[in-house]
Design a protein around this nucleic acid. Sequence first.
DNA 1: TATTGTTATACTCTATAACTATA
DNA 2: TATAGTTATAGAGTATAACAATA
Lengths: 138, 138
Amino acid sequence: MEREDLGALFARITRRLIEAERPLLEARGLSMWGYVVLSHLSHRPASTQLALARAIGYDKTRLIGVLDDLERDGLVTRVPDPADRRARIVELTPAGRDRHRDARDDIGAMEDAFLGALSDGRRAALRRTLAQLAAEGE
Amino acid sequence: MEREDLGALFARITRRLIEAERPLLEARGLSMWGYVVLSHLSHRPASTQLALARAIGYDKTRLIGVLDDLERDGLVTRVPDPADRRARIVELTPAGRDRHRDARDDIGAMEDAFLGALSDGRRAALRRTLAQLAAEGE
DNA sequence: TATTGTTATACTCTATAACTATA
DNA sequence: TATAGTTATAGAGTATAACAATA
């Protein structure tokens, strides 16, 4: 039996998901990485830029432009850490929290449609397995 | 309950798989897309360049460099189609078939390790679900 | 001397258009 | 007029090094 590469399967599905997300985020005025930043801050309220970059697996120099955009749009604030004046603490504003919730809801609805053909049991099994595989790498 | 984005989960796992594949392919002298081309030709023996590009979801202009490399290394041949002299038919050479088999075996072993913690039942369920999700988009 | 945030530069990938030879 | 393969060019994304401020 011909077993298809796991990597090819994952890559194809990831590409489809990203393509489906892009217009939803664009309609909310968010870039992909901007959304990732808001998501991370939504359940871990404040973080230095370096810690944030490491947590989301992104480069610290590229994160700067993303934060510039988010700050300009009033979705996050950067305030100097009193304990270490080199560091700047990134925090969600109320507007940032709202924007993230709206985008997340849009994406959640898209994901439900994406998984359309799967039973509830298979959806749950998939999420469990994915969470386990994603967690192992840390 | 906080449900993590499906897209983020898939993207993280895909990145890990690709990072694990890269050194294996490099050791076999193959690029990622070179391997994808060999894989496709291994179960669909011959194809025009345009059909190949569409089948693997890649751009026809970028495919050219990939085929140049594979041809230079003696892994594929490009012969003009007698029925349509604009088109060139891409075919695996015996060396190409061997190279693909070796790389595929390396990758298969890596994937088994990657899925290490999962039971046989959960592996099978995952593959079934992934195949279904990947197929829907076509 | 090392670290945080930043800027600058070079490099790689990707997208697009244009060209040739056939149809 | 359209299509298969190719080439060239411009743009986006990425990696790296260097800098100022602070530890």
